[in-house]
Write a protein that binds this DNA or RNA. Structure first.
Length: 286
DNA sequence: TTCCAGGTACCCC
DNA sequence: GGGGTACATGGA
């Protein structure tokens, strides 16, 4: 696992970097994550209950990523560069309600602002769960507190025109909990249900299903992934039906392929803006 | 200052 | 189904 790549892959907005370590709230527990030699990490419980099973599930530790990377490269050699650059990224299984709100915030928005808005929401309304080197950490407010929030509250948190979307999403939390356990769900049914919520379209629904419910067969398409598809498959990617066919080929690893594409394209652009001697390894081929 | 962001709703054809 | 536009906000 590569903490820097995982942090930087647009899926988690609750970690903080303090003195080179990643401080991660997981449920009501707070962990210090330290990157050791390549691929190895050390985690230390800072505060809160030690719940090993939650931790394992959050990082998806029982899955053999090496085997999956080999499978992807073997079947889709054009993705070799993306796999090389993204090796170490893990798809995190986070809290479904947090992902619901986070990815509504994410639409037409910058990653630093998404992070800031979610932090503000937790600081203002959530319970404090621990302190690390002077930095306080908060959990997401409970359902009842969230239900009490108004559009004005969210506008004050910088949500802009998304404020009514957030309020309507919160009104659906009870129904979502009742209908969809946050694991082993039918992703197609879940995505369809999420899209019934005003302000949630196909991309946001797919991200919530992936990061909040652990659905690996979804394929969220944002600006970066669209660029990647065009990069790999040219004008073919524009044709209707092509992406559906491609996702069919990626099958149960669709989400990881998507995440590798996202990371690869973003880092590629960052590289172009960086001096050559600071560029990351594993550049795109082709 | 201007541009733009892990999109979506809404309108038109 | 495809194509266009408005949308709040603040970081870069």
């Amino acid at each position: 696992m590569d903490l820097a790549k995982t942090y930087d892959s647009g899926q988690v907005f609750s970690w903080k970097i303090v003195d080179g370590n990643y401080i991660a709230p997981i449920g009501t527990a707070l962990y210090e994550l330290r990157q050791m030699e390549e691929g190895l990490c050390e985690a230390k419980l800072i505060s809160g209950p030690s719940q090993e099973e939650d931790f394992i599930r959050y990082f998806d530790l029982r899955r053999d990523y090496g085997e999956i990377y080999n499978h992807i490269v073997g079947r889709h050699p054009e993705l070799t560069g993306a796999v090389h650059r993204g090796r170490g990224i893990r798809l995190l299984k986070q809290d479904s309600t947090e992902m619901l709100l986070t990815f509504i915030y994410s639409q037409n928005n910058h990653i630093p602002r998404i992070r800031k808005s979610m932090e503000g929401l937790k600081e203002l309304y959530g319970p404090e769960i621990g302190t690390y080197k002077g930095h306080r950490f908060y959990a997401l407010p409970g359902d009842e507190v969230l239900k009490g929030l108004t559009e004005e509250n969210f506008i004050a948190l910088g949500a802009g025109y998304r404020a009514p979307y957030l309020v309507s999403a919160i009104a659906n939390i009870g129904d979502l909990r009742a209908g969809y356990p946050d694991t082993d769900v039918d992703s197609a049914a879940l995505v369809a249900r999420l899209q019934e919520i005003h302000g949630i379209g196909p991309k946001v629904a797919a991200c919530i299903a992936l990061f909040g419910y652990g659905c690996w067969d979804v394929f969220p398409i944002d600006t970066w992934v669209r660029k990647a598809l065009k990069h790999y498959y040219g004008s073919e990617a524009e044709k209707s039906g092509f992406i559906k066919q491609k996702v069919g080929e990626f099958g149960p690893y669709s989400s990881l392929v998507q995440q590798l594409m996202f990371y690869h394209m973003r880092e590629g652009v960052k590289d172009e803006r960086r001096p050559k001697n600071q560029q990351s390894r594993g550049r795109a081929k082709g």
